[in-house]
Structures are given as C-alpha cells and as structure tokens.
Design a protein around this nucleic acid. Structure first.
Lengths: 106, 106
DNA sequence: TTGTTTGCTACTGATAAAGTAGCAAGGTGT
DNA sequence: ACACCTTGCTACTTTATCAGTAGCAAACAA
C-alpha cells in the first residue's frame, strides 16, 4: 500500500517549507487560520492552506471549527520526538561558530 | 552573533530538499560527488553542489579529496538524533493509513 | 442592514529546483 | 608525448514551488 519507507515519507513532508513551523506554532493549543498566519510571519494563505491540507491528510492536525486548528495526538508525539533535536541544535550552533577560521587567536 | 534560535536554524537547513537525504546516504561511509548523485535519484549537480556547500558550511559534512564526501562527527550525531523519528514514522504511517474513511467495514 | 471574522480561492510575480551539456584539473595507462 | 578516464563543478534553460495581493461566500453580531 505504501510505496515509500515511512521515514522517507515523513522527511518529504517535513522538508516542505513551513510544515515544521506550523506544527511548532500549534504546540500550545488551537489557533485559527489567521492566527496561524500571523504566527508564521504572515505567510500567504495560499501556502498555509496547502500545508494545512497536507497536515490534515497526514493526520497530524485537524480543524475543529469551534476552536481552530489543533494538533492530533500523533502531531503532539512528533513534537516530543523533536525535542532531542533541539538539544543537539544548541550544541551544534555553538560548535560550528567556533572554528579555526573564524576564531581569533589568543 | 546568531540571530536565530538554533532549532530554527537547523529546521531551515533540514527543510531544504535533499539535505536530510544526503546525510542519510553518507551514513555508511564516504561517497564521491557522482556516487552521491546516483544515490540521490540522479539529482542535478547544480542542487547537489549547492547542498554540499550548505553542509560543509554547517560542518555536517566535508570533502576529503582522497576518500570523498564524509559526515563529520556532528553529522553523525545528527543521524543518531534522527533514529527515534524513524520509529515514530513507522507507527505514524501505519496509523494514518488505517482510518475510518479508508478502512473497509468488516 | 452593516460590520466583523472565518476559511479559503484566483491570479500574478518571484525564487528555488531540476535537466542538460560540458569544462578544467588530476590521475592512469601506452 | 598521447589518448583516456573520473573528479568536482559551472553555465544555461526549463519547470516546479513559494510568495503577495485581492477578494469571495458563509457564519455570526450589532
């Protein structure tokens, strides 16, 4: 039924611009379409709508008309999985900005 | 020195097409430019070269002329961080393809 | 009615990615 | 020297993706 390995499928989805950001912005609770828009640097409704459709199809988010767009349980799980990446990223950013070329001698 | 939070910076990088795939293809050891190309579905040298530059700048990969392109220690660490995502993805793919709409009644 | 907010679409312009051809540098073998 | 490779890479063109703007219909409120 699935042509692709699961990891390839999710990497494809998360490689699309704004997808991870949208999930991130929904971390604290539901947001309306327009709230999401302004949370994501006023991205165009064209792209936002497209991404929300992808996220709904992937069952990572859904639209509860009375509350707004919300993460599903799976969406929240994905955020949990991403937490270690945050730790790694902090160490990475510090390390890559402290290289022989850019570091001044002491 | 850094305008962006580390997590935003790495999400930006990993959101670019082929970046994660390239890291993945280097998991087992060095590959030459052309080996990487064919490993990544014959992607154009234009994009591959661009991505390799990004990865070199991010110090996740480097080019050892005698061996080919290789992951740095940080690059390998990133792969480690991604392992849980693989587990999550398998469960996610199974769950999302077993929904009330697409599932036939028994 | 008038006004507001909702999700969303249509249309246009800009940017990123892909496809193809080919080059210069370095090695290898004759 | 020569003709061959493979290397990383660039130039150029086409196509896909993303962004910006305007605005609509539905739902509700004053």
């Amino acid at each position: 039924m699935n042509e692709k390995p699961a990891i390839a499928e999710i990497v494809d989805l998360l490689s699309k611009k704004w997808v991870m950001r949208i999930i991130w912005e929904l971390r604290a609770g539901p947001l309306t379409f327009r709230q999401l828009q302004s949370a994501c640097n006023d991205l165009s409704p064209t792209v936002l709508n497209n991404r929300l459709k992808l996220l709904r199809d992937a069952q990572l988010a859904l639209n509860d008309p009375s509350r707004g767009y919300t993460l599903t349980d799976m969406g929240r799980d994905l955020l949990e999985v991403y937490k270690p990446l945050n730790q790694w990223a902090i160490a990475w950013q510090a390390a890559k900005n402290d290289t022989p070329e850019t570091r001044r001698p002491r």
